[in-house]
Computed example of a mutant assay.
Amino acid sequence: MLADHSKIGVTTFAHICGLKEVSTLITNGECPADIQQALKENGVKLLSSTYTDQDPV
């Protein structure tokens, strides 16, 4: 999933999918610690311009 960092953690009128259906979240900025923890608990890889939970390729 690709999402602008300003959209992370924001409730809107549309639901795209649950975390269990996402393998990787790519974003352009900071991701709050509670969201990072939720992603990790659900096996979602986080890639952003400020943080990555993976070693560089």
Rank of each mutant, 00 (worst) to 15 (best):
Q37A: 14
I8W: 01
A38N: 03
T52V: 02
V44Y: 00
D34K: 03
Y51L: 14
V10S: 09
G29A: 06
Q37D: 06
N28F: 04
I26R: 08
L2W: 04
L19Y: 10
M1D: 12
A14C: 11
L19V: 02
Q37E: 14
F13L: 14
S6R: 08
L25N: 07
T12C: 10
C17H: 09
I16F: 12
K40C: 06
I35L: 06
I26V: 15
A38G: 01
L25Y: 03
I35K: 07
S6W: 11
I35W: 05
S48M: 07
H5C: 10
T50H: 10
N42D: 01
D55C: 02
K40R: 11
D34R: 02
G29V: 04
V22K: 04
T50R: 11
G29N: 06
G18K: 10
T12N: 12
A14N: 11
M1G: 09
I8Y: 02
H15E: 14
I26G: 02
P32E: 07
T24H: 15
N28D: 15
N28A: 01
P56I: 15
N28R: 01
G29Q: 10
S6Y: 02
A3V: 09
S49C: 07
K40H: 09
T11K: 15
T12I: 12
I35A: 11
L46T: 06
T27Q: 01
D34N: 05
Q54V: 14
Q37S: 01
T27M: 00
L47N: 03
K20W: 04
K45V: 13
H15R: 14
S48F: 01
I8Q: 08
F13H: 11
S49Y: 05
D53E: 00
H15L: 14
K7W: 10
E41P: 03
G18C: 09
A14I: 14
I16N: 08
T24W: 11
S23V: 05
Q37H: 06
L19F: 05
C31P: 02
L2P: 01
V44W: 03
S48K: 00
I16R: 10
K7P: 04
A3R: 05
L25D: 05
L46I: 08
D53Q: 07
Q37R: 13
A3F: 11
T50D: 12
V57N: 14
N42V: 06
S49T: 15
L25T: 05
Y51A: 00
E30I: 01
M1N: 08
A14V: 11
D4Q: 08
